[in-house]
């Protein structure tokens, strides 16, 4: 792939992230961070593809640096991580895949529908796993889902998941 094309695509991805960040009413001062997050996602995706990965795998691969960046912005700019994540994942999420799946379903083209549906599902799972993976890495003084002041409160409870804490039954 040509470098200019790649550069333009990365720019377009960043711009798309800002556009959707604006639509989700993110505060103006975070626009640049959202753009960088979104651009990173697409860059990671293209790099993954160059390394010979399949589409879902490449999107998972792209989500890792993107989510890490979103988390870094969340810490340094003291805002919830979802502010940066929502715009950032927009270029990666399988919007067109969902549409094609539903479209082939209505057209009665079961073979195409199954193909598109499986790929869409894989992509969505890949992105979700990537986000969950990056956000669950413990960092001192910062939990992924919530910003805590470092001095006052020891730790927030993890996201509602009572089963995870328990030792395996049996």
């Amino acid at each position: 792939m040509e470098l200019t094309t790649l550069l333009l695509e990365v720019l377009a991805s960043g711009a798309a992230s800002v556009a959707y960040a604006a639509l989700f009413q993110v505060d103006r001062r975070h626009y640049v961070s959202c753009a960088i997050t979104g651009a990173m996602g697409w860059l990671g995706y293209r790099i993954g593809q160059q390394l010979g990965m399949s589409v879902p795998m490449a999107r998972f691969f792209a989500t890792l640096p993107m989510a890490a960046l979103a988390r870094w912005f969340a810490i340094t700019r003291r805002a919830p991580v979802i502010v940066f994540l929502l715009g950032g994942i927009f270029p990666l999420v399988p919007g067109s895949g969902i549409y094609y799946t539903a479209y082939y379903f209505i057209q009665g083209n079961s073979a195409m529908m199954a193909m598109k549906g499986v790929e869409t599902f894989k992509v969505a799972v890949g992105i979700a796993l990537g986000i969950a993976l990056v956000l669950s890495i413990p960092l001192k003084g910062h939990t992924s889902s919530f910003m805590l002041p470092k001095n006052t409160v020891p730790a927030a409870p993890p996201p509602a998941d009572p089963t995870r804490e328990q030792p395996a039954a049996k």
Partner: peptide
């Protein structure tokens, strides 16, 4: 399209 809803 509900891409973000699906992923989230």
């Amino acid at each position: 399209t509900p891409g973000v809803a699906l992923t989230m």
